[in-house]
Design a protein around this nucleic acid. Structure first.
Lengths: 348, 348
DNA sequence: TTGAAAGCGCTAACAG
DNA sequence: CTGTTAGCGCTTTCAA
């Protein structure tokens, strides 16, 4: 069935090694020889067996990307960018989703599906530092997103506090003063929305404004529905914010929907700023002002980090300590920008 | 570094075979023996090397899913469903995107990244039957989506003509008669939007209405921007449709945006129906009526098809012909339903 | 019920 | 420049 090196070797009347040399483009092969082998390869339709190659080399050429939820376009778009970035290094991407649950995140980080992978890019939500401390995988791990741990793994993210402050400052600059925050998660100590919430609070305080908890609306998740629910609850509580800063675009869009239902106009009555810059935000009836992280750079850096460590034999590039978990992790900051659209500037 | 079967065997003082038996849960192993081996495994932290196992068994446990574009939430949501469906069979999913280009689709179908995969689920756009005819891969292939080929591969899709007719009938039932179709692709013979366009035409004709080409707006792609552009062009041409049936939700949403900009109200002036039922459609200022394909069933059937053929040694299950490409492909129809929302029913 | 040994397809020393 | 050989970690006859 399968054509192996051996078959090609026999056909060409040379040794296996020679065929291997040709396949791997080694120098020091006579053009004639090379040609002869090439022909045999074509005739037999030989294709190298990557599994075997990788068993031998100890690498598979596959890196895994685990995100909370593919249904969130931010992660879908990011995944696309990672696939492309990986392809540039001749790596293939295995995609997994965790639903943002700690259990699944631990499983993934421990190599649940990972015995076949060379490295892992993980975007955690509920994962705690301790969950990673005992990690005995030699596959390099790179962490993405808001959560930061003091652990020997590279961490790639935008400056979430600064980004949140930028968003709030924009709103303040528009003359808004009762700015709500949608999308806090208060169910655990190291809450994921931590930094953006802090940015919101800090900027308000810096402006001499109060940042009351009554303006903070927690959500159970990060989808449209969660934003809608949170917005409705906030309104029902009697609050009358003149602006909303949402944890992400989906929450913002869900909130805008409720605002419209209640007869509040965006941005006239309530200005709205999201986070992520998903395509969807550009095409609503009222397009969404948002914080736009540089997804492509995030993807590129994440893949580069994995590839670097792989080349270094699993060590952190900077210092030469051994093992995928040794050394200090780097904090890689990616740029972001505020994209102003109708939800803060519009005629509505 | 890595702990192998051999290490465990030595530690437990038994042969490799015995350890293997324990790991693979074979019967005929004394409980005592099993216990002894288990302990050695735990002590050493042994984890089976899948690459080696798969080299031996000729399977990798990975199936690939190739979609046009992850940025389109339909495919992102579908990908999530496929990952889950595959997990139920203990398969992992390798994700790739083709951008809908024929070249990339051919590459993928020929196993561009596929030497590591056991099977492939492909959602083609531009691929032609001839591109698949010479496929010499033994990895089972399953095709998804609107394009149908008379080839020995299972094809899973909803009845696109019937779905389109359902959408148009709904619009007709609302008293609309000038129903535009947005999202035709006219740049190739076997155009991807073929079936939905045909459904539109057929239903109009059946109702005794004209289906003029002037009401058909081609698009270059399938995103929001394409829908917006097409809608604008249609309006600029002087057409005044009282309803729009779009190739997909993204196009519909892009169109609604333009409609709003032009001061046309949905659904009062123009009713809109999309296709795909992406989450986004539920949360616009005007929620979108759409055709909702059963994504989970599509995912489940696709994975099941691959797994079946794999079990059958690559043959099409029904008949016993050999080879991944032998036999007739099955046409698997998945159900869909019309979800009525504000873009056709609403108060707007 | 368990052990010994062959070999999946490939790469990498080491010879020649 | 090319051939021989060992072995990656595992499963699987075949014996014991």
């Amino acid at each position: 069935m399968t054509v192996s090196l051996k078959d090609v070797a026999e056909r060409a009347g040379v040794s296996i090694k020679t065929v291997s040399n040709v396949v791997n483009n080694y120098r020091h092969v006579t053009p004639a020889m090379r040609e002869r082998v090439r022909r045999a390869i074509d005739e037999l339709g030989y294709r190298p067996n990557l599994t075997a190659r990788h068993l031998r080399k100890g690498r598979t050429g596959i890196i895994a990307l685990a995100v909370p939820e593919l249904g969130n376009p931010y992660f879908a778009e990011l995944a696309g960018a990672v696939i492309d970035a990986a392809a540039a290094h001749e790596y293939t991407v295995l995609l997994d989703h965790t639903g943002g649950s700690r259990e699944r995140e631990i499983l993934v980080s421990q190599g649940f599906r990972a015995q076949v992978i060379d490295g892992l890019i993980l975007s955690p939500i509920e994962l705690e530092a301790e969950d990673l401390r005992g990690r005995d995988q030699d596959a390099p791990l790179v962490l993405l997103g808001e959560r930061a741990y003091d652990l020997p793994y590279d961490h790639i993210a935008i400056d979430n506090v600064a980004a949140a402050r930028t968003a709030v400052r924009h709103l303040l600059g528009l003359g808004r003063s009762r700015i709500a925050f949608l999308g806090a998660r208060t169910d655990r100590i190291n809450e994921p929305s931590h930094l953006r919430l802090r940015g919101w609070r800090t900027e308000l305080t810096a402006a001499g404004l109060p940042a009351p908890d009554t303006l903070v609306a927690p959500t159970g998740g990060w989808g449209h529905a969660d934003g809608a629910t949170a917005m409705a609850r906030l309104l029902d509580s009697g609050e009358r914010p003149d602006a909303v800063f949402a944890y992400n675009d989906l929450i913002a869009i869900g909130a805008m929907r409720v605002l419209a239902e209640r007869g509040l106009r965006v941005p006239r009555d309530v200005a709205v700023v999201g986070f992520d810059d998903v395509t969807e935000g550009r095409y609503g009836t009222v397009s969404l002002t948002t914080i736009s992280p540089d997804k492509h750079t995030i993807a590129r850096l994440a893949v580069a980090s994995v590839v670097e460590r792989l080349r270094a034999g699993g060590a952190v590039p900077e210092d030469a300590e051994a093992g995928g978990g040794a050394g200090r992790g780097r904090e890689l900051r990616v740029s972001f920008r505020l994209v102003e659209r109708e939800s803060t500037r519009g005629g509505g």
